[in-house]
Design a protein around this nucleic acid. Sequence first.
RNA 1: GCCUUUGUAGCUCAGGGGUAGAGCACUUCCUUGGUAAGGAAGAGGUCACGGGUUCAAUUCCCGUCAAAGGCUCCA
Length: 646
Amino acid sequence: MINVTLPDGSVRTFPEGSTAMDVARSISEGLARNVLSAKVNGEVRDAGRPLPGDCTLSLLTWNDTEGKSTFWHSSAHLLAEALEALYPGVKFGIGPPIENGFYYDVDLGDRTLGEGDFAAIEGKMKELAGKKSAYERKEVSKADAIAYFTEKGDEYKLELLEGLNDGEITFYSQGNFTDLCRGPHIPDTGFIKAAKVMSVAGAYWRGDEKRKQLTRLYAITFPKQKELDEYLVLLEEAKKRDHRKLGKELDLFTFSEKVGMGLPLWLPKGTALRERLVNFMKAAQEKSGYEQVATPHIAHKDLYITSGHYEKYGKDSFQPIHTPHEGEEFLLKPMNCPHHCEIFKSRPRSYKDLPIRYAEFGTVYRYEQSGELHGLTRVRGFTQDDAHLFCRPDQVKEEFMKVIDLVLLVFKALDLKDYEAQVSLRDKEDRSKYIGSDENWAKAEQAIIDAAAEKGLKTVVEYGEAAFYGPKLDFMVKDALGRRWQLGTIQVDYNLPERFELEYVGSDNARHRPVMIHRAPFGSLERFVAVVIEHTAGRFPLWLTPEQAILLPISDKYVDACHAVAGVLKSCDIRASVDERNEKIGRKIRDAEMSKVPFMLIIGEKEAADGTVSVREHGQGDLGTMTAQAFADLVNGRVREQLGGL
RNA sequence: GCCUUUGUAGCUCAGGGGUAGAGCACUUCCUUGGUAAGGAAGAGGUCACGGGUUCAAUUCCCGUCAAAGGCUCCA
């Protein structure tokens, strides 16, 4: 008999050779019908495999991440089986589960697959799933495995086999399909009730650009048709908040083929919104002792040779600008740091001057591969809310804490509530690749950990994730749809101070090297605006939104009264416009609701007579009447609250 | 850069070898209406660009450009 410990701590006894499925059945038939795989002593295994002896066991269902993974992994095999049935001779790469669904990389020879083929594939998958074929596990010797795939002519699987040792090779079969696979899998294909092929894409074998490009089919499956339908609805929701679509609808930015791909053009409303972000950050930075600097958009090539950027990125970047003079070359700046280093160097510095904090909303240009460009999140020209802090090693912690405050202020102002910090440190063993003294690294790493802890951040520490030139702290933010974004990087740099030979004179009258910290709470204005659009679905916080209120006259008789109120609001720094169209009030309200203006102010005979406005809030409805001044106080009060008193 | 898909009015899209259609937006007129769409008329397109096939191409073919989803990298 074996003892099985369940997640609730209870221990049950079963005969030797019992499976997780037997355990499930002993609890309830309903549970048994939903078990996809099982976690045995922390390892996810087939539910139908005999338990190894005394163990801890959790039964995994669709509600567990690992259960879903098992389900999708098995679905990948089902997809492969369908493909093999439809396209005989197809060769298979890898087919793993991913965050939402799974994919399979296949080599179809000269055949190409398009969206038109999806329906047939889905149909075949459902047909095969209906057969309820069991997933059968088989341990095979390496020689037998090689023989099988040699016979089948599947060179990709043979290559995968090269990396595996004899004794650890397993095959899984269902129906007519057998695959090299570590497993685990669900009991049988009958669990898969709904399947959808999502998209097709090219993917290099083993992610290597030099190797053959395979066809990657993305698909997703569900244990119920209803769940697939709901998933498709969710995708539609995400599409609706796409910043590229909303950016156009809200008149924020545009692109022009003539100007060039990846080079956004900011429209008046978008520019005003950017400026509000800039002013917000400038005000916060001024409070924290930053000084604004301004540097040119191009710099001599030598600057980047000194910084090392030319050697590292020169060939993959915008190419040098040549002047009429022979051999003189300038580069568009891909970052602001070298310029700021030169400003630091412009005169001797004392330890008493530190920390020095130079901030610049610097527009930089980087050549991104054409296929990489994406709306505002990946562009070729963008403006960083950049700053470089030059400080003594003992000031690192203090500076990190101040930057963390700045980042949290941003999160609060944009209503980003779900975030965690990631601290990237050196590899624990191999420390040869890092520049800078061991002592300084240790000090800075500890300073970052302490700073994050003192600020009460939820933190994950990643070893080996630091750049060669220094440790860093990143914020991972989840938006309203649960997608993760990296915002607010704070990065220590031991490299540039070295290359630029930056120095300050210490209290000991000796020369010391300052620590440099890069930081950009927004990252870039472009990407940040994109994140904010998608997070808020275009319903910006009141302080940031392009139009805070719209005045709606009941008829043209009250247009003048509306303009008078608009004037009062403007003098209170409230952005408002008047809907002068010859339309009924119902229509104006509908349009204003659709365009997401936070407040609608309605003026008719009554309001015009007693000098009030009738206030309606977006998505909330009628708030009653008040004076223009009372409304202004209401708006400004909320704005102050959002900005954290800034 | 590569793979798949797409490009028709300002926007969303339909159509299809015989030089174009809807809804919304826009203009004008009627209507002066109290909390989510009042009515009528009108204007608006080298069907992305360049070649080819054809008596005839927006439609079929090829190329270019751009966009979408991936692969690699990153803010």
